[in-house]
Design a protein around this nucleic acid. Sequence first.
DNA 1: TGTACATCAGTGAACGCGCGTTCACTGATGTAC
DNA 2: TGTACATCAGTGAACGCGCGTTCACTGATGTAC
Lengths: 239, 239
Amino acid sequence: MDLDTDHRRAPRTARAMARAELTRDIVDSARKQLGVVGPAQLSVRAVARDLGMASSAVYRYFPSRDHLLTALLESGYNELGSVVEEADSAVVDRNDHLLRWLTLGRCVRGWAVAHPYDYALLFGSPVPGYDAPQSTIQPATRVTGVLAVLLRDIAAAGPVQQPVVPAAVHRSITGMHEFIGTEVDDGLVMAGAAAWSGLIGAISLELFGHLVNAVSDHDAYFEELLHLLAPTSDRLAAH
Amino acid sequence: MDLDTDHRRAPRTARAMARAELTRDIVDSARKQLGVVGPAQLSVRAVARDLGMASSAVYRYFPSRDHLLTALLESGYNELGSVVEEADSAVVDRNDHLLRWLTLGRCVRGWAVAHPYDYALLFGSPVPGYDAPQSTIQPATRVTGVLAVLLRDIAAAGPVQQPVVPAAVHRSITGMHEFIGTEVDDGLVMAGAAAWSGLIGAISLELFGHLVNAVSDHDAYFEELLHLLAPTSDRLAAH
DNA sequence: TGTACATCAGTGAACGCGCGTTCACTGATGTAC
DNA sequence: TGTACATCAGTGAACGCGCGTTCACTGATGTAC
């Protein structure tokens, strides 16, 4: 948790620098290992072996295997988050909401395809016996944060024809409203949720092997899906 | 693989019956264990312990841990498949395509919520180091088979306004076409794929803990999502 | 600048554990005559 | 129906393995005066 508090004011001692670097190396090696075995059998000893150090030395940096897992989650969420944030901010026409959605979707999938095991850690089955601590929440919200801003911008661009939702649904999504902002109406929130569900579902189905005999050109297929899933009202007019 | 060939013509000897029953017991116990630890650390010894037998005895029934995993996959897919098939066939008005979609979606989620670890096995992260054999393919297609029939019925009911897809997409989804039937046009196939992606994404996000601070009443939320995701053209008119 | 002490990184041996799988065996069940 | 043999289920000990974590230690780095 407060493993990195030592360099809060950039202490430039040799020790502190070495520590920061080795901490990074451990996380990197662990993520590499994730690609071979999956998070459930992530092994402290294998990481130590990979780095050529005694397994007990890792405990100078992470007090337990679970803390290492936490660091992996934060690292993954942050990496994905910054990729998506950057790509979104690179879209010059901020009113081209469809393009911003497409950018977000392509980005998430691109990262997922490039780092399938990190994606599985973030969006696949939870690791049994491991409870993600509070500190992972903030990094986890960065991607959906980009989507939230997009929804706000869509709402600000003018009222869109979105279906009204039942009262039970309205009450149920107060958490989403607090996160996204109250200026976005229920219908648009749900449209965003549906789009996000479809995006994660599409990527999971692809990466977890459920399209093996169904789809050949995954890029073209996904691109088409992404248009269908767009939360903008003009989705059917996309072509 | 051919573990069950012994009772192909129902040999009613005591031995064969005992074997069939114990085989079932092993699978059931393994599925129970899945609920505690996850598929990656499914343990032959734990299953044996649970059944009060020597760990080596399990090898009379399953030649290896991986074969046991395969049996779990088949068991899960078949259970989910028959639940969905039954529910669909219970819809009397076969032309109420929206209701049939809703039934399918409710069914899949209902089963997933009731058996979260089985769902994770089927639709979550793949088990590292394990390659699902051919024998799991057929059971795996039962659920999507119900969706395929629904799409055929929608297509048969008359041409629906569906967007035309690019040629690359058309070429990419021949596998889906072969599975669903050629009378379903590209647009409807993709609408079905988007709906299915959204369904799996919605369930995964819920079960894997990504809606924790976002949604309170999951039933109401999901019901609304399901309407938004419907592959029928009247989805926006659902309310 | 030099010394004395405190802090920290890294080592290697050891702990106790549970795992998958094999093997030679005993005793029960099935089958052919 | 009875006997002789073959098949099979289940046992318990043993194999070799990798794991997370602890601990007393050595030597290097940092700090206060």
